[in-house]
Simulated assay, not measured.
Amino acid sequence: MEWTSAQLRSLVELTRRGTVTAVAKALGYTPGGVSQQIAALEKSTGMVLLRRVGRRVELTDAGMTLASHAERILATEAEAVEALERTRTEVSGTLRVGLFTTAAAEILPPALRRAREVHPGLTVRSRDMDVDDVYDAVAGGTVDLALGLDYPDVPIPRDPSLCVLPLARERFSLAVPAGAMPGRRTASLAQVREEGWILPSADSYYGRAVLTVCRRAGFEPRVLHEVTDTAATLALVETGVGVSLVTDLMLRLRASRLDVVALRETVERHIVVVFRSFAEHRPTVAALVDVLRSTAFDRTAAPPQPLPSRSAADPSAEADSRS
């Protein structure tokens, strides 16, 4: 029997995600491409690995058996890459990095500049993804490491196969329409309980974190606009249709004419780097993690500051980006 890593990874991802469409999104393939990988694997093994159940697919007994071995095969391949890297006298090779948009705009660029200076043999290929998907992407081997977020109020479940290291801690402030709270430097969440809110879906970790802290303050936020995109959120606050929570990095994604008021409550998010535990001593991973930790701290150490006001029509305003 012969198979490729891509075929095995497609099979493993099906056990995690349940649909060909979800696997395609996770691996950066088309749904047809995933189906072709599985079909080739079935031809190689001479076994039926999938069966369709309504709109979903599920693995047959043979598929489940091969998937369990496939995880070990892929892990062994990754360990072999790590062992080969350790035989080199300098850090060199290619790393696949997953990241959410704030990280793509503010954290990765200075890290890449620094990495080129100290590790010219290191090549980084990055991939933008939903921030809630980065943990699964690392666990599944889609990327070698990823930049992600964690919320103390709604911690993301820890996979024992993953190592999660903090890069920076950000405290949330209130973003309110300009002039809505004149002269006020601090406010509690309860003081905006009657306002309309602009928040991501309650199914997201960020949305759940905000719901949690609002409930702790004694109210249920009245969500008028369910928005994932950070720049769109800032634009909506700017037009006066609601309030939201922001961090310093989020504010940098779009210069907006709004007011930022410090929260009396401590509401935080942690920027983290995620990689598989057995890759901790892989030279390329260790090198990029070191660079990320130093440059991310430099980038986020300053307290949150609002950007100079700029109208939404300003042509120099940056493009919208997801949080």
Results as ranks from 00 to 15, higher is better:
residue 1 M to L: 02
residue 2 E to L: 14
residue 7 Q to S: 03
residue 10 S to I: 06
residue 11 L to F: 03
residue 14 L to K: 07
residue 15 T to G: 10
residue 20 V to L: 09
residue 20 V to E: 01
residue 23 V to C: 05
residue 28 G to A: 07
residue 31 P to D: 05
residue 32 G to T: 00
residue 34 V to Q: 04
residue 39 A to M: 10
residue 41 L to G: 09
residue 42 E to L: 03
residue 42 E to S: 04
residue 42 E to R: 01
residue 45 T to D: 03
residue 45 T to H: 02
residue 46 G to M: 04
residue 49 L to G: 03
residue 52 R to T: 10
residue 58 E to N: 08
residue 61 D to I: 13
residue 64 M to K: 15
residue 66 L to F: 07
residue 71 E to K: 10
residue 74 L to M: 06
residue 74 L to C: 06
residue 78 A to E: 12
residue 82 E to L: 15
residue 83 A to R: 11
residue 83 A to Q: 09
residue 83 A to I: 11
residue 88 R to F: 13
residue 89 T to H: 11
residue 93 G to L: 09
residue 93 G to F: 08
residue 95 L to I: 10
residue 97 V to T: 02
residue 97 V to A: 03
residue 101 T to Q: 12
residue 104 A to V: 07
residue 105 A to P: 00
residue 108 L to A: 08
residue 108 L to V: 13
residue 111 A to P: 09
residue 111 A to R: 02
residue 112 L to A: 09
residue 115 A to H: 06
residue 120 P to S: 02
residue 121 G to C: 02
residue 126 S to K: 05
residue 126 S to P: 00
residue 132 D to E: 04
residue 133 D to T: 13
residue 139 A to G: 12
residue 144 D to S: 10
residue 147 L to P: 04
residue 150 D to N: 14
residue 156 I to L: 14
residue 161 S to G: 14
residue 161 S to V: 14
residue 165 L to H: 08
residue 165 L to P: 02
residue 167 L to S: 01
residue 168 A to R: 04
residue 169 R to L: 12
residue 170 E to I: 09
residue 175 A to T: 00
residue 178 A to Y: 03
residue 179 G to M: 09
residue 179 G to N: 07
residue 180 A to P: 00
residue 180 A to G: 02
residue 181 M to D: 04
residue 181 M to L: 15
residue 183 G to L: 07
residue 188 S to H: 14
residue 189 L to N: 05
residue 190 A to D: 09
residue 192 V to Q: 11
residue 196 G to F: 03
residue 197 W to C: 05
residue 199 L to Y: 06
residue 199 L to N: 10
residue 200 P to H: 07
residue 200 P to A: 12
residue 200 P to E: 09
residue 202 A to T: 11
residue 204 S to P: 01
residue 206 Y to L: 12
residue 206 Y to C: 12
residue 207 G to D: 00
residue 207 G to A: 01
residue 208 R to I: 06
residue 209 A to S: 15
residue 210 V to C: 02
residue 216 R to K: 11
residue 218 G to V: 06
residue 218 G to E: 04
residue 220 E to C: 01
residue 224 L to D: 14
residue 224 L to E: 15
residue 224 L to S: 15
residue 228 T to E: 15
residue 228 T to Q: 14
residue 229 D to L: 04
residue 232 A to D: 10
residue 234 L to T: 00
residue 235 A to Q: 11
residue 238 E to H: 03
residue 241 V to K: 08
residue 241 V to E: 10
residue 243 V to P: 01
residue 244 S to V: 01
residue 246 V to D: 02
residue 247 T to F: 08
residue 252 R to N: 01
residue 254 R to Q: 11
residue 255 A to H: 11
residue 267 V to K: 06
residue 269 R to S: 09
residue 269 R to W: 06
residue 272 V to G: 06
residue 275 F to E: 09
residue 275 F to I: 11
residue 276 R to G: 07
residue 277 S to E: 14
residue 278 F to W: 11
residue 279 A to P: 00
residue 280 E to A: 14
residue 280 E to K: 13
residue 283 P to L: 10
residue 285 V to K: 04
residue 294 S to I: 00
residue 298 D to T: 13
residue 298 D to P: 00
residue 304 P to Y: 08
residue 304 P to V: 15
residue 305 Q to M: 10
residue 306 P to R: 03
residue 308 P to E: 07
residue 309 S to N: 13
residue 312 A to D: 08
residue 313 A to W: 08
residue 313 A to G: 12
residue 314 D to M: 00
residue 316 S to G: 04
residue 318 E to D: 15
residue 321 S to R: 15
residue 321 S to I: 08
residue 322 R to F: 07
